[in-house]
Each structure stands twice: as structure tokens, then as C-alpha cells.
């Protein structure tokens, strides 16, 4: 995903003079093409995220479109107040890209896990919160975000995430997509972890369970029209899936959405997300997803026990 980001912003920077890339001292070599075409619009702001976020706000208030790129915990919770005031309150045209989100850097430990970024940022008014499932969705969202007013946060993985979306999918911001038809159970996810649902569905299909799978692309804005269509489909259970804390992310958003919309639907909601605790026994992303119960095995087990 991060290579797709580099390719996309290089293309955007060629087309537009107002695109500026701010890096928190990461992305070695990744942005060489960007630096070649716009050397004065790439700034390594050092390992100083609070300053980077505020100066981005200053740039945005002066007519530029800065994009901030660094590892998720450092571009979100590390500089939260600068996001709240500089970006969101000022409605500054900043795109914040967190790379290595969720458990992408599982081996690096809790300092590099980001399992609370969505929960925290969604309490701040006026900031879009996106979690593309793959590189195509990321590119579509970036291209849309550079033409919108106000700040956007995009939570991405690192590298090697599989392609999820169909070639002809209409991707973008606030767009729900049905990835796979099915009945009785709808699994709703955000981010690359949706691949675990696709894997699980293959196993489940062999056991005569045909679940539907959809992605939402983010949680702010939420695709209400798509969700209302899903409500009409009368699935008996919705399962939310996210590589994020069980508290405050997609699952919480869906429960709030259902409660606030007063549906007569009897749909049950089950949430799959990271338990509300720090992770001590480390391993790679696959191992850690399994250990905390958010991988395809956990999905299968939940569905078989419904």
C-alpha cells in the first residue's frame, strides 16, 4: 500500500503545484520520484510530529495541500492536539497518512501498534477517517481527498497487502462495496484485514455457509445509503471486522448507527476486533491476528457458533 501511496502522490504532484509531502523521517528511497519532480515540495520534517502537524496547518491556511506521512501512532495520537486544533478546527486541507496501521508492525511491539487511532480521531469533529482495503481503494480515496475541503486521515498498511477490490468497483470516499454475495450473515470490514474474511468465506463455503462480505472504506463519512440497503436484505447477523480495538472503531460505529437510525430490523451485531488490552507476546502480523482472535480462524469459529 505504501508504494501505491508514493506512486499516487508523485502523479498528483506532477499535476498540481499545491501538493506538498511532509515526512516524519521515514520513506527512505520511496519518495525519490517525488523528490525528482518536486524537490522543493518534499520536506523531511524530522522526528517531530507535533511541529509537522502544526506547520502543515500553516501551509494549508496559506493555500497548499500538505500530506503528512509517517508511522500511524506518531501521526495520530502523538500529535493529537495538533490534529484537533491545527487540522480539524481550522478545517485545514491536510491529508494525514498513517502507514503500518493496526498490527502491520506487530513485531515492533505496543509502541508501534495502532489499535486506538480510529476511536480517538472519531471523537474530533470535521475529519474524514478512511481505511482502504487495498492499493486501488487507497489511490481512489487519495485522488478524491485532494479535491475536498478539510482534513482527511487515511490509515494504511505497509506493503504486500493483497488486492481486494474488483477492477470495476466504484471506489472512493464513503463508499460501501459488496465484495461477495451471500445470505443470512453479512460481514462488514474496513482495511486490509478484510482479506481474512475472504479466506474464512472459502472455508465456510465448503461447509455450506455462504456469507456476504462488504467493505466500507472508512468510518467517516459512513455510507448510510449502502448500510440501509444492507438492512433491507434482512441478514440475521452482521459481523464487523477491523484491525483495531473493539472499543470505538468500526463495530462501535455500526452499533451507534443502528441505534440512532431506529430501525425495526432485528439484526444482531457481533464485533471482531482487538481485545481491550496491550499485546505482550509478539510475533508477525499473521501470528498476532491469530493470537488475539481477529483472523480467519476466529471468523470461522464465531460464525459456526452463532
Amino acid at each position: 500500500m505504501r508504494n501505491a501511496f508514493a506512486t499516487c502522490i508523485t502523479k498528483l504532484a506532477k499535476e498540481r503545484e499545491d501538493i506538498v509531502l511532509l515526512s516524519g523521517d521515514i520513506g527512505n528511497r520511496m519518495f525519490d520520484d517525488f523528490k525528482n519532480i518536486a524537490p522543493n515540495r518534499f520536506i523531511n520534517c524530522g522526528i517531530a510530529e507535533a511541529n509537522m502537524m502544526s506547520l502543515a496547518a500553516g501551509m494549508a491556511l496559506s493555500g497548499l495541500r500538505p500530506m503528512i506521512y509517517t508511522i500511524t501512532p506518531f501521526t495520530t495520537t502523538r500529535c493529537l492536539e495538533q490534529i484537533k486544533i491545527g487540522a480539524a478546527y481550522h478545517q485545514a486541507n491536510i491529508i494525514i497518512v498513517g502507514t503500518g496501521s493496526g498490527l502491520s508492525y506487530a513485531e515492533l511491539g505496543p509502541t508501534h501498534h495502532s489499535l486506538e487511532d480510529i476511536a480517538i480521531l472519531r471523537s474530533i469533529p470535521g475529519i474524514r477517517i478512511l481505511a482502504p482495503a487495498d492499493s486501488n481503494e487507497l489511490t481512489a480515496q487519495l485522488e478524491e481527498a485532494v479535491n475536498l475541503s478539510g482534513p482527511t486521515y487515511i490509515r494504511i498498511g505497509k506493503k504486500g497487502e493483497p488486492s481486494i477490490h474488483h477492477k470495476n468497483s466504484k471506489l472512493g470516499i464513503g463508499k460501501g462495496q459488496l465484495l461477495k454475495e451471500g445470505d443470512e450473515i453479512l460481514l462488514l470490514g474496513i482495511g486490509p484485514i478484510i482479506n481474512e474474511a475472504l479466506k474464512a468465506s472459502e472455508t465456510l463455503a465448503k461447509r455450506d455457509k455462504n456469507i456476504a462480505i462488504a467493505t466500507l472504506g472508512g468510518i467517516e463519512p459512513i455510507d448510510s445509503a449502502f448500510l440501509k440497503l444492507m438492512i433491507k436484505r434482512n441478514f440475521h447477523t452482521w459481523i464487523t471486522l477491523e484491525e483495531h480495538s473493539i472499543r470505538g472503531g468500526l463495530g462501535t460505529t455500526i452499533l451507534e448507527w443502528i441505534a440512532d437510525n431506529n430501525f425495526e430490523s432485528k439484526v444482531k451485531v457481533k464485533r471482531i476486533g482487538a481485545p481491550h488490552k496491550f499485546i505482550h507476546k509478539l510475533g508477525n502480523q499473521e501470528y498476532t491476528r491469530n493470537q488475539i482472535g481477529i483472523d480467519n480462524q476466529a471468523i470461522i469459529s464465531l460464525i459456526e457458533n452463532l
Binding site: 522543493n40 511541529n51 502544526s54 506547520l55 500553516g58 494549508a60 491556511l61 493555500g63
Partner: peptide, 25 residues
């Protein structure tokens, strides 16, 4: 008024961003 300030440590970095923007533009 150029920006909301009062949370200390925000205004000067914003002024820095504005100075950088002048150079870029």
C-alpha cells in the same frame, strides 16, 4: 486573525508552515 491560538506551542509552528509556504509558492 490568522489562526486560533491559545494552546501554547501551536502558533509558532503554524507560522513556520506559513513561511515555508511562501518559499514553495
Amino acid at each position: 486573525v490568522e489562526a486560533a491560538t491559545g494552546s501554547l506551542g501551536h502558533g509558532m509552528p503554524m507560522a513556520l508552515g506559513m513561511a515555508m509556504a511562501a518559499n514553495i509558492k
